[in-house]
């Protein structure tokens, strides 16, 4: 095996291990699949009965936001399982094997994407049940899901970085909650952000969660001409802005997570 195929083959072996692990951990499955289902139902029926968005049904508006939320939560599995593994001896085992060291994080993030794919499928079905529809071409719909998965992959490198910096599951969970709640709530995921007071509106417009939500809305055709369009650049060019975010996250967090991993395991 050469230097190029080894990380791929080893990464796949680790990804299979992590996928099995996720499948056998009810808590992880729960946070990745049950939470989004509960959120779809809660927002669709509780918020949906009081919130109105101009020119379209709230549920159609909501679902792309819930997709983004599911990705943000699902990508935390990478960070969380890394902190759990750090407390066991399994990384010592990996490091004593003639495998590609990069395979550990590659495998972890790839498994996470597989998990996110499963979670998106569940949610799309839930969405269809509560009345969400795709109004664009199948190609654009595929692009929409593709974008979500790319976001999931890039974001799990971010959670890996945070986890390898913090190193314990408890502190990781605290930070993850502290980051993901404002990230999702000060955005256009559940609300029409143009109605927010100015400082919050500006934050929401430049929030990457809004960018991704907007991009997915455009690709699924869950938009309405009756809604005020924001002047902020990432909102007007949501798809390229999302791709830019993904590129930036990968460029920053892949090397950073790799460095922190080496530091965390060489004790």
């Amino acid at each position: 095996m050469n230097a190029l195929t080894m990380p791929v083959a080893d990464g796949w072996t680790i990804a299979r291990r992590n996928a099995l692990k996720i499948r056998r951990s009810p808590d992880l499955l729960g946070s990745a699949i049950m939470f989004p289902i509960v959120f779809v139902l809660m927002f669709a029926y509780v918020f949906g009965s009081v919130i109105e968005v101009p020119g379209m049904s709230y549920r159609e508006f909501l679902l792309p936001g819930i997709f983004v939320q599911a990705v943000v939560m699902g990508a935390q599995i990478t960070g969380y399982t890394l902190t759990l593994d750090l407390q066991k001896g399994i990384f010592d085992r990996f490091r004593s094997l003639p495998m590609a060291p990069s395979a550990v994080l590659i495998g972890q993030t790839v498994a996470d994407v597989l998990m996110n794919l499963a979670s998106l499928v569940v949610m799309a079905v839930m969405g269809l049940i509560v009345g969400w529809r795709v109004h664009t071409s199948p190609q654009e719909a595929v692009l929409g899901f593709g974008l979500l998965l790319l976001f999931a992959y890039a974001f799990s490198w971010f959670t890996a970085t945070v986890a390898l910096g913090l190193r314990t599951p408890e502190s990781f969970n605290n930070v993850a909650t502290m980051v993901s709640f404002p990230l999702m709530f000060v955005s256009n995921a559940y609300l029409d952000s143009s109605k927010l007071p100015t400082p919050l509106r500006v934050v929401a417009e430049w929030n990457p969660a809004s960018t991704f939500t907007q991009a997915v809305r455009e690709l699924f055709g869950n938009t309405s001409d009756a809604m005020t369009t924001s002047d902020a650049w990432p909102m007007r060019h949501a798809v390229p802005a999302s791709l830019l975010w993904i590129a930036v996250m990968l460029i920053v967090f892949v090397p950073l997570a790799t460095r922190l991993y080496k530091k965390a395991v060489s004790g």
């Binding site: 951990s25 066991k88 001896g89 010592d92």
Partner: peptide, 9 residues
């Protein structure tokens, strides 16, 4: 190792 380095799941 001193602590069993296998995956519990």
């Amino acid at each position: 190792g001193q602590y069993a380095a296998v995956d519990e799941h």
